[in-house]
């Protein structure tokens, strides 16, 4: 690796401009680029390529190019699933915002020990395995779970509530698991915000709510958008939580994809769904970039 980076320092003039630029990149950039290509772009290219092949006789794929997989993806059944998935991810993102924003705001406003403890508490759940955490919620929400037991003891309900295997359970699981990814970008945006801007707004006649609306929020919008995307994107492909907390009663795009790969063994069709998901993500990111440049120009 060192030879590739040191060579241009010797000043080979006849190098082509593009080659020169690439060779001039520092070592960490090379590591990152290698990682990006090897672990993300190549696997994605394989999936994308496979989505244009046919299903093999005993599962897997056969070398017969076709567009049938995409034709199938756009059948009404799957479009409905896509719609439902988008709706679930969007509403769960909003729920995450409703819970996470006050948390981020509180953490950004507090100082010293309180802030440290708060940040540690936010990440403590991540010291346990994801699947274990989801099972933790299962035992919490079950008919004989802690929550129902407490409510029964307190006399608030007579019969246990059906919490597990409902949409509510899915939402709870999603919000719980993705919350920190939303809190951190908003927290850091709030932290970077000059506190004297809030004072200036109040000084000029804005009450606290107005100050928040007219000054704080517009200045941390980027953080909120990034936090939202951080949770929205992985939620689109989520399949474990709907399975375990939703009781596999409802099918989302992630579930379809996983079952195509591991149950039905139709890898090309699973790949087409993955391609569709990637398209959704690309669309979201493009939309964000577009809004950003438009704001920048205004």
């Amino acid at each position: 690796m060192s030879t590739t980076t040191e060579a241009p320092l010797l000043g080979t003039v006849r190098e082509s401009p593009a080659g020169g630029l690439l060779a001039r990149l520092p070592v960490p950039t090379w590591i990152f680029l290698a990682w990006l290509v090897g672990m993300t772009l190549v696997p994605f290219a394989i999936i994308l390529g496979m989505s244009f092949l046919s299903k093999g006789p005993g599962g897997g794929w056969a070398w017969e190019p076709t567009l049938a997989n995409y034709a199938r993806v756009f059948q009404w059944t799957y479009v409905k699933v896509l719609g439902k998935t988008l709706w679930l991810a969007a509403t769960a993102t909003v729920s995450c915002l409703l819970v996470g924003f006050p948390v981020a705001y509180y953490l950004a406003r507090s100082r010293g020990t309180r802030r440290h403890v708060g940040l540690v508490l936010l990440f403590v759940p991540f010291w346990t395995n994801f699947i274990l955490r989801v099972y933790g919620i299962v035992s919490l929400l079950g008919m004989n779970g802690l929550l129902n037991q407490c409510l029964l003891r307190l006399g608030l309900i007579d019969t246990p509530l059906q919490l597990l295997y409902t949409r509510a359970g899915v939402y709870l699981g999603l919000v719980y698991n993705y919350l920190p990814f939303l809190v951190v970008p908003i927290f850091s945006a709030l932290e970077k915000l000059d506190p004297s801007l809030r004072e200036a707004a109040q000084d000029l006649g804005a009450s606290r709510p107005l100050t928040f609306w007219r000054v704080t929020l517009p200045n941390i919008r980027e953080g909120v958008v990034v936090g939202g995307l951080f949770v929205f994107i992985p939620m689109l492909g989520e399949y474990v939580i709907p399975d375990l907390l939703g009781g596999a009663k409802e099918t989302f795009l992630g579930n379809v994809m996983v079952s195509q790969f591991f149950v039905v063994q139709d890898w090309p069709f699973g790949s087409a769904i993955a391609g569709l998901l990637a398209l959704c993500l690309l669309g979201t990111l493009l939309l964000q970039a577009l809004l950003r440049t438009r704001r920048g120009m205004a």
């Binding site: 004072e199 200036a200 109040q202 000084d203 000029l204 804005a206 100050t211």
Partner: peptide
């Protein structure tokens, strides 16, 4: 915000 008093802050604090 209820005082008819406005401030020019040391580092201006423009929005």
């Amino acid at each position: 915000h209820r005082r008819p008093v406005h401030t020019v802050f040391q580092r201006y604090s423009l929005f």
